[in-house]
């Protein structure tokens, strides 16, 4: 027998279940318990950059929107820095870059307001195109799904993004690019996430 390496093993994931709102968004479950719920204010009042709205649905293999999803976002500020000791330069006071939303119980629509992130540093060299990191849990999802949302108006940066270029099938890269439109003067990005089918969204083993 060789020596034991003594690493611990990661705790296994289990589905968030249908009642994830109780723990992570109790107001949506139907009761107020905490003085403040977390994750509703992503950018704060002082963040520089373009104020945007991001909306979408998560669609199952039958083509139906999933109505009990919880989605978390982790993003850089407009200068490309994350609100973390290893995230680059300091960010604006009140900018957290983290948000948490749930889908509407009737329509399956989710949405949040934030600022458009800037380019971030690459793994070792270069930059990555502006993007949001997304994490999706729900009943029937055994382990949280990681994906990224890129911006349709960043075609040049997207073309050289190292992560998009990792995706061998060029047509699948389009599943990660949100289309920009405008509503009442605010830019709105539409990002539908498809769990199955020909246009299944690209998910990452991060």
């Amino acid at each position: 027998m060789a020596q034991n390496l003594n690493y611990l093993r990661e705790t296994a994931s289990q589905t968030a279940g249908p009642y994830v709102h109780i723990g992570l968004a109790p107001g949506a479950a139907g009761f107020d318990i905490y003085k403040q719920e977390l994750g509703w204010d992503i950018a704060g009042p002082n963040a520089a950059g373009e104020r945007i709205r991001v909306e979408g649905r998560v669609i199952d293999g039958m083509g139906a929107p999933i109505k009990d999803v919880l989605l978390e976002v982790w993003q850089a500020n407009a200068a490309g820095n994350y609100a973390h000791p290893e995230g680059g330069s300091p960010v604006e006071d009140g900018f957290r870059g983290w948000g948490r939303v749930i889908t509407d119980f009737d329509t399956g629509e989710w949405g949040f307001d934030t600022v458009k992130p800037g380019k971030t540093r690459g793994r070792n060299v270069g930059t990555q195109a502006p993007h949001l990191n997304l994490w999706i849990v729900a009943r029937g999802i055994n382990i949280g799904l990681n994906t990224r949302m890129y911006f349709s108006d960043e075609a040049e940066a997207n073309a050289t993004d190292p992560v998009l270029n990792l995706i061998e099938w060029e047509n699948r890269r389009a599943t990660l690019i949100a289309a920009r439109s405008e509503r009442d003067g605010t830019p709105v990005y539409r990002f539908d996430i498809r769990l199955q089918g020909e246009d299944e969204t690209v998910f990452f083993d991060v």
Binding site: D60, G61, M62, I66, A138, R139, G140, I141, N142, L145, V163, L166, I167, R172, L195, Q196, E200, T201, V202, F203, F204, D205, V206
Partner: peptide, 11 residues
């Protein structure tokens, strides 16, 4: 119906 079918991209 809620499980992706393609392989995840290793990142």
């Amino acid at each position: 119906a809620r499980s992706p079918r393609y392989s995840m991209i290793s990142l």
